[in-house]
Design a protein around this nucleic acid. Structure first.
Length: 765
DNA sequence: CTCGGTCCTTTTTTT
DNA sequence: AAGGACCGAG
């Protein structure tokens, strides 16, 4: 790969602190890859001494694959199976790797982090269930007055500000914080008892461990070359960890772009760069400003928007790429139509080179390939809830699609159930998981019995398996409960035994067999749900087969760890051609030839939570910038005048971001032309294929809601008084008066209307 | 204890 | 709109 001068500069400076300011599409990934290659191939640095930290698994995987390619080796699949390959993983994966490594070599007491090696990772819902239990059962507090979510937020905030439970007392200045303080202490106790950590703990505990000089020194020696991507998104503990690790050899390179900082709600603090500059005032600063991704117009537009932000550095992203198409603006009457129009465009522009009416020959001046596939389309939105309407439209049109969803695959009930079985087998101290599965499928162990066992457990300092094993000795339970519990114990013990002999995928099958989980699904659900759930289970087993070849217990442990960190985005999809839908946040690591950016409405984007505060609003604007710069060649921006939200219809004004765009770049999408061409084709030749028909007949066009109020962008000069025109809604008519853009049109069937002829979807006949 | 109906919340963004 | 929490009857 040929690097430009700046990129090469960044590549070659490997033994010095380095700040790479890399703006969107500047091929920073390529630069980093080249840098790793240079270190290994030309400077003979041991690959195992290189650590590169990213934010998402997607980014990490891509980096690993690229690096592997340049080194002519296969990319490792697991942190634990690297074979002299650089450590290129996410923050969280790497820190867990370090924690496990440390815990296997040192005594827990020595580390003072209250963890054992087989710890489990609690996700958001596990966390909430622990907190709910504390608030309700231990403190007897009203869920409405002190919602677990809010308490969780405060605790998370404290952890990310490096305030421990003990020290939180100093923060208490209100009733709620009083509760937070008490809950925080209990929460930490519970986690320690369950041998569990939450996502925040992953950072906090790693930092704690690295503050022990002996251990820090080991890791400094082990990883002498550090790279951190998306440095603007680091938070306080992450910054500290990186600082510690790099402090000895100072071979730290960070990639930073303040215009793409969109995670402040996760306590990312882009001012960490100020600290970086203080820590390394001799750092070499390299700016990558040339964009290799998008057309000139997209870049110009993105620049215009981002420069509305007050920031330290003026953004002048530039490109040598083609000028090409304008950016299209779709103003739809409602969210349903917005979705329909987008789907129409995709349908029309995909696999449709035979359609003489709609396929544009040779556009892009060599930049674009001739035929576009579904996979070339990316639909973005601010909130996940917006995906539904788009999905419906795609389904109707029979277009394959995939939604990268907030509800992670691993959050689904059936998957969680099975994972909780695995968790309990792996770590019998995990009470949250135990409580989830002890009566799933239903085996008549009711909440009362569980409560009794809980009290018993707390009084006698026993673990759940210990109680279950000796359930006969618990006098408070009746015989029915005892029977049910000892039946469960038989299953549980068999599963634990099995876990020593069977690899993780076999173990999952064994769980299903012994617990009759499929019968449970069979009984409880409707047909469609059943099928999708069984499919999900198959998928889980399928993922688990990747851990074959390891020791059974090891496969279980690694599987559970990786599963906790993997999001929907990282799972592979075998279908090769589909439209992708996701939130803007998720899209940060992607680019696509054609991007649809939807829902450009005040309150939605920018979000209603952000518009009162300057800094929050600027983050929304950065989000807009990120979204726009995903597009390589075609960008469509859309808005619905009316949207169904929160179970109600809402009308929001157009997003302020639209007004920040220089108008000369924006072209209203001409739906009228589109429909009319289709009309001609349909009526004249009747050569339509059934595919088209089934689509159109089921979409808004035929469903009796002629909402074709999309703005056109007519050339006013072609119209004159007495011209005959056609309007999609009002039919044929004659222009009876014309004053600039304002026309008075007498329609044959609908009377005289006044309209702006530039914007109105009228067509000369 | 179980089922079923009703009411209530949810929706910002993610490792 | 839809899933979860809650409550009351069987």
């Amino acid at each position: 790969m040929n690097l430009n001068e700046k990129q090469a500069e960044a590549k070659n400076k490997i033994d010095w602190p380095l700040l790479i300011i890399a703006w969107a599409g500047s091929w920073k990934t390529a630069t980093l890859t080249a840098r790793v290659q240079y270190m290994i191939k030309e400077k003979w640095i041991f690959p195992s001494e290189i650590m590169m930290v990213t934010f998402t698994n997607k980014a990490a995987t891509e980096m690993r694959e690229r690096v592997a390619k340049t080194l002519w080796v296969e990319a490792p699949r697991s942190v634990y199976w690297r074979n002299n390959f650089p450590l290129i993983w996410t923050f969280h994966s790497i820190w867990i790797f370090i924690l496990k490594d440390v815990l296997s070599r040192y005594l827990s007491e020595e580390l003072a982090i209250w963890l054992k090696k087989d710890f489990v990772i609690y996700d958001e819902s596990d966390k909430l269930s622990v907190l709910k239990n504390i608030l309700k059962n231990r403190f007897n507090l009203d869920e409405k007055e002190f919602p677990a979510r809010q308490i969780a937020f405060f605790i998370s905030n404290a952890k990310n500000s490096l305030i421990t439970a003990k020290w939180y007392e100093a923060e208490v200045d209100s009733t709620i914080k009083e509760v937070v303080y008490k809950a925080y202490i209990e929460y930490e106790k519970d986690l320690a008892q369950n041998n569990a950590i939450d996502f925040d703990d992953i950072l906090v505990k790693t930092l704690a461990v690295l503050r022990i000089p002996k251990i820090l020194n080991e890791y400094q020696e082990r990883y002498k070359y550090l790279m951190v991507d998306e440095y603007q998104d680091t938070n306080a503990p992450q910054y500290e960890i990186v600082k510690l690790l790099a402090s000895k050899y100072r071979n730290l390179a960070v990639v930073w772009d303040d215009s793409q900082s969109i995670y402040s709600w996760r306590w990312a603090d882009m001012r960490n760069i100020i600290n970086f500059k203080k820590d390394y005032n001799d750092a070499l600063i390299v700016k990558l400003e040339q964009n290799y991704r998008s057309t000139k117009k997209i870049i110009a537009w993105a620049n215009a928007v981002i420069n509305k932000n007050t920031s330290w550095i003026k953004k002048e992203l530039w490109t040598d790429n083609m000028e090409w198409e304008h950016i299209s603006y779709i103003e739809a009457p409602d969210d349903k139509t917005e979705a329909s129009i987008i789907v129409n465009i995709i349908k029309e522009k995909t696999y449709n080179t035979n359609n003489p009416l709609l396929y544009k020959e040779g556009v892009g001046g060599g930049m674009s390939e001739k035929e576009w596939n579904y996979i070339d389309n990316l639909i973005l939105y601010r909130t996940n809830a917006q995906s539904r309407k788009l999905e419906e439209a795609l389904m109707i049109a029979n277009i394959p699609y995939r939604v990268i969803w907030w509800q992670k695959f691993y959050d689904r009930k059936e998957i969680k159930d099975l994972l909780c079985y695995l968790k309990v087998i792996h770590n019998p101290d995990d009470i949250v998981a135990m409580k989830r599965i002890i009566n799933t499928p239903t085996r008549k162990i009711w909440p009362k019995s569980i409560e009794t066992m809980d009290t018993y457990r707390e009084n006698f300092w026993l673990s759940y398996p210990q109680i279950i094993e000796n359930i006969a000795e618990v006098p408070e339970l009746n015989n029915g409960a005892k029977n049910a519990i000892s039946n469960f114990n038989i299953i549980f013990e068999d599963l634990v035994k099995a876990s020593h002999k069977k690899v993780v995928w076999e173990l999952i099958r064994e769980i299903i067999k012994l617990t009759k989980y499929d019968d449970y699904i069979w009984e409880w659900l409707s047909k469609e749900e059943k099928e999708s759930k069984l499919e999900n289970i198959d998928e889980l087993v399928n993922v688990a087969t990747q851990y074959n070849g390891m020791e059974p217990r090891e496969s279980l442990s690694i599987f559970l760890e990786e599963v906790a960190l993997i999001t929907d985005m990282d799972t592979k999809d075998e279908r090769s051609d589909y439209v992708t839908l996701m939130t803007i946040h998720t899209s940060k690591w992607l680019e696509q030839k054609r991007v649809f950016l939807t829902g450009l409405e005040e309150w939605l984007f920018p979000s209603f939570r952000s518009i009162w505060e300057q800094s929050a609003l600027e983050e929304e604007r950065r989000l807009m910038y990120v979204a726009m710069t995903r597009a390589r060649e075609e960008l469509y921006i859309s808005r619905a005048k009316e949207r169904f939200n929160f179970g109600d219809f809402v009308r929001n004004p157009e997003s302020r971001f639209l007004k920040e765009i220089p108008l000369e770049y924006l072209v209203n999408y001409d739906l009228w032309e589109f429909i009319n061409k289709w009309n001609q084709l349909f009526w004249n030749s009747l050569s339509w294929n059934s595919d088209w028909f089934s689509f159109w007949s089921s979409s808004w066009w035929f469903t009796g809601k002629p909402k074709v109020i999309v703005q056109a962008n007519n050339d006013v000069s072609i119209f004159a008084r007495w011209d005959r025109v056609n309007h999609p809604k009002f039919g044929n008519g004659i222009i009876t008066a014309l004053n600039g853009e304002l026309a008075e049109i007498a329609f044959t069937w609908n009377g005289i209307k006044k309209m702006n002829i530039r914007i109105a979807p009228v067509r000369k006949m």
